[in-house]
Simulated assay, not measured.
Amino acid sequence: MITSRRTAALPRRTLLAWGALLCLAPAVQAQAPAWPTKAITVVVPWPPAGPSDIAARPLAKGLQDLLGQPVVIENKAGAGGNVGTAAVVQAPADGYTLLVTSSAPVAINASLYKKMPFDAAKDLQPLTNVLRMPLVLVTHPGSGVNDLAGLLAQVRSKPEGMVIANSGNGTPQHLTAELFRDAAKLKLDHVPYKGSAPAIADVLAGHVPMMFDSLAAIMPHIKSGKVKPLAVTGAKRSPLLPNVPTMAEAGVQGVESYAWYGFFAKAGTPQPVVDKLNATALQVMKSPEFQRVLAETGSEYVGDTPAHFAQFVKTEAAKWDRIVKQSGATID
């Protein structure tokens, strides 16, 4: 009997051991492979040396240092950011092709273009906001105004209104001006340019009296005295321009707007990769090197969770959709 009980017990232990191994096998097979194991491409859907590069290049360098793989910037401009963004959407959802862009292709263009090559809300996975800086309304020093109240009075004194430059139809600069025009009940005629630089050039020359632009783009000309800042569009004053009021402080409510640059992957990217990209990006953004970028651009730390950033993008898209429809702006 003793022998038969021992003989009967052995198969049970063996079966239990095999059962444990069988249970472990699916878990081992389900583990995602190590990531990253090769170079990562960060697509910037704008020309080189533009404002998006201010966000993308220090972020890419920090990611490369922390992830231990090359991170290459690829500028792929065209169609208001749609070309480069579409390239990311068409790439595999594996975390090796990423996107750093301004708000246009992810929160504005769907309202401007009759046909889009992607659906940003469905085709992109938000990772985190990277930079967020207010815009500033500037005027030529020869305009004869010293503050926003003076500018409002000047515009309202002209039956035909005045013109305002912008960096292109549907850009944040253009739509912020529309937001301002609506909030202040002004008559403003927009003069669209092919980019911020030529618009700034005409304001500097006095050909156009005013424009909105990001602090990163216009700050050198403010420092040199070639343009005069009247108000910033943030919720609070910029540390770069502590003596310049916000729009609300200057008497115009409802004009809160930012030039922001976000970090995205393709929708469907494995969650462990999304989490690692988010955590690593936040680590980069807290570094002394990136903090200098924030200080130089008048930005604030805007690191966020993917879920919160997705909600922010959704809110921005709804806001600009209303302004686009109200203004009648279109690209097609």
Rank of each mutant, 00 (worst) to 15 (best):
L16C: 02
A17P: 02
A17C: 11
G19M: 15
P26E: 13
A27N: 05
V28N: 04
A32L: 12
A34M: 00
W35E: 05
P36Q: 10
T41K: 05
V42I: 15
W46K: 12
G50T: 12
S52L: 00
S52G: 00
D53L: 01
D53W: 06
D53R: 00
I54G: 06
A56K: 04
R57N: 04
R57K: 12
L59I: 05
A60D: 09
D65V: 06
L67F: 11
L67I: 14
G68W: 09
Q69T: 13
P70M: 09
E74R: 13
N75A: 06
G80K: 02
N82D: 11
G84Q: 01
V88S: 04
P92R: 04
D94W: 15
G95R: 07
G95A: 01
G95M: 10
Y96A: 02
T97I: 03
T101D: 01
T101H: 06
A104E: 13
P105D: 09
A107G: 03
N109E: 12
L112K: 08
K114I: 03
P117D: 12
F118I: 06
D123G: 09
P126T: 11
T128R: 04
V130I: 14
L131R: 03
R132Q: 15
L135I: 08
V136H: 00
V138I: 13
G144K: 14
G144V: 13
V145S: 06
N146P: 01
L148P: 13
A149I: 07
